[in-house]
Each structure stands twice: as C-alpha cells, then as structure tokens.
Design a protein around this nucleic acid. Sequence first.
DNA 1: CAGTATCCGATGCGATACTG
DNA 2: CAGTATCGCATCGGATACTG
Lengths: 230, 230
Amino acid sequence: MRTYGQFCPIAKSSEILAERWTLLIVRELLLGSHRFNELEWGLPHIPRSLLTQRLRSLEDAGVLERRADAGGKRREYHLTTAGLELFEIVKGIGDWGQKWVNHNIGHGDVDPKLLVWDMHRRLDLEAIPDHRVVIQLDFHGAARGIFWLVVERPEPSVCQTDPGFDVDLFVSADTIALHRVWMGHTTIHEAIDEGLVEIDGLPELARAFPKWLQLSFFAGVQPAGATVAG
Amino acid sequence: MRTYGQFCPIAKSSEILAERWTLLIVRELLLGSHRFNELEWGLPHIPRSLLTQRLRSLEDAGVLERRADAGGKRREYHLTTAGLELFEIVKGIGDWGQKWVNHNIGHGDVDPKLLVWDMHRRLDLEAIPDHRVVIQLDFHGAARGIFWLVVERPEPSVCQTDPGFDVDLFVSADTIALHRVWMGHTTIHEAIDEGLVEIDGLPELARAFPKWLQLSFFAGVQPAGATVAG
DNA sequence: CAGTATCCGATGCGATACTG
DNA sequence: CAGTATCGCATCGGATACTG
C-alpha cells in the first residue's frame, strides 16, 4: 500500500479509504451486500481481480472480515465494528455529493444494472403484495438493457436474463429519466406524464408499483442552489 | 479525471475526493493554509507538479477558488462554501483513523517538518509571551532535523535554516517520542522524565513552553481498545 | 517565492483469459 | 459462483530544470 509518510490520522485513514473503489465497496457492504457476486452487481465495471485485492486490503486494515457462510462452502464479507463506524462518513460524503457535485445526470453516469440493483434493495417489503410479482424493465435512451425484478418475500431478486416466470408488469423507461426519479430530481408521475416512463399491466398493480419503490437514500438532499419545489 | 460511471453521489464525490493527496490538501486549507508554499510545508513529499494539478482539479470541482492576495501579485487558495462543508467529513475521517488505524507511530510515519509546521499552527496565542521567543528544535532518532520556531504575535513562523536570532530555548527530542506527545498517546512530562525530550533555557521559559503547545486536534480521541489512563 | 515543463521508472488499473 | 493469473497502458512519483 502506498503511504504518505505522515502520522496524521487523516493521512493514515486515507491510505486505506481514499484508494479507488474502496469507498464504494464499503458502501455496498453497509447497504447489506455480503457475497462476492452481490458486490459485483453493485460495482459495475470493477475488475474482479481488483475487487479481490481491495477486499484483502480491507481485511488487513480491520475494516471487514471473511466468514464461511451458513452452508460452509462460500465466503461472506462482513464489516467489523471499525467498518460499521464508517457509516456516518460514507453518508456524509454522499450528502455532500448530492448537494454540491454537478447533479445533471449525464450519459456517462447512468448504469441500468446498478439502478435495478439499488431499486431491488430498496423495495418496501411492507408494501409489496403477498404473492410474487414479476416486473420486466426495459431501459432505452442513453443506455439500454432489460432486467427482471422478481418481487417477493422474504427477498426480492433481480436478473439479467429472463427468469422464465410470467411477467405481471412491463416498465419501459428512458434510462436518464428513471435515474432522475431515483435521485429525487423529479417524480415518477412527472416522468410518466412526460411519456418517459410507461407502466403496463393490471391497472391495480401498475398503480401500486410506485408505492413499493423507495428512492435513493440521498433523494431527500437538496442540491445547492435548487429552488424548493412549490 | 477518472470516473466510475455511476450516478451515486458517493461515487461522484469520490471521483473528486478519493484521489491521492486530495483530502490532505483539503485538510491543509481547512487548517488555514492559503499559499502554495504553506501547502507544501504541510504536505511533505508531494511533488510540486502534482500539487498544482490537484489544486486545479479542486478549482474545477468548485471546492476552492484562486484569488490574488492583498498585494495583488500572489495567488491564494481559499475554500468555497462547498469546500468548507467538507469539514465534518475530514474531521470524521481523522477521528476514525485515530480510533481504529494502527496507532503505533512507526519510522515510516514520522516527519519532523510536518510536526513543527503543525505545532507552529497550534501555538496558543493567548499564552505566549509578549516578546519574541526563538526556539531551536533538534530532532534525533527515527528521523533527524533541526528547525527554528519563532514564537511571536501576531503570527509565529517556522524555519528550516537558522533565522539568525538569539535562541531562547533549545529543545532536543526523540522524533517518535514528540510525535507520541502530539498525538496524545503520552504527555510531554512523561517524555521528559524518560529522557526522550529535553528543554534547555531560562527555567521560566522552559516551564512555560509546554503550556503554549496545544496538541493535535485528534489528541483527545481514544484509540479503540485503549485503557483509559488512571 | 510561486509556480510550470519535462522526463523517466515504478506502480496501479483495467481487460482478458483461465480455474476449481 | 468465486475467484486467480497475466499483461499492456496510463498515471503517479520523484528529480531536475526553467520562468516571472
């Protein structure tokens, strides 16, 4: 690991935390991912070898620990007490970003895979129906992709290939528009009115769907200089 | 600038803040350095070209702005509102480091130059005498160096070469020992008792010196697992 | 003093391919 | 699924020299 040659605690922390990808890995762990594959879903474009390397560094630094899972065969990654105490820092960085960093979501910043992964993790388990609902999401515009969201208790899941179930709801969305909804820059109803998002299926389900969908943790943070919506 | 291709505010912030040296530059600005040369004092080993580059990135990101100073000739770097709002984040990272990162100060982590720079910035202006006091600091042990601290109002200064004034106090210190005092791991009186720090000069000044010296901002944070001193 | 310009070697990153 | 191995390239770090 590269060091700064300083005793300052900010420098010592930065040696661990300020390396590329590291904070995003911690974010994923804080949000409840524990398996290598789950981490990959939340970190599109990270080289697998680099993920391995970072997980090892974080283990050495005492931020996380590897465990064998219940089955005994697979590994799981869990934050230690030290790692869990990064919550406020990571949240603070996110709040700062939402407030101050250019909040025009551009073509380079959108990733349908990450969006559906985030969405599936924020579904309101209290609000979803008792029975399984399968949603097909078609993204178009800045970036394309088709995903399936299998909404069920105890744990919703997401697929990149057709899971084979009958589809109950078809959602077709402009990629940037749905990102803007997720980030709280607009509402899903506005996006629907503008024709950028369409929901097809049983009217009852179509009406209920927006209620299951919780937004990003940072959707409530106002960008600096934004006028408060009337 | 390297990006992550994510809309997540943590990722957008990290693109700016998680690059090497960046957080330490922000630390220096938060602590009151504004000129290129002051920044260099607080960032030993940073290549000047890289400092220039980072300052430019931070300006582009809206974290700082360049100004002409009062004289009109020199440039100064000042945090914007966005930059000032990084205070809690930087402090949080420092607190976390002081609590959780290996707090054995080793040979690779000591830097007398940074230490005297930090010390001169934390001198208690209320407590120092009315007249100028010149202190020569001799570091020995893990890393060597001689510095002169010119203690005076309104602004103390520090030199790497003999400023030519009569020296009022000679301080001779083991480098690691004085770092440990600064970080709150021990007291200066303990270090003196162990023979690791010596102060020579008028007894009145020698007695007063420890009182001018405020410690690191993080000296009050207990390392995890540390027993509270009795 | 306050930078800018250039050059070189080491390392980190990212892409691809391979394995149990 | 959960990694490991390898390799080219970009960036960083450090040195040196130059400028207003």
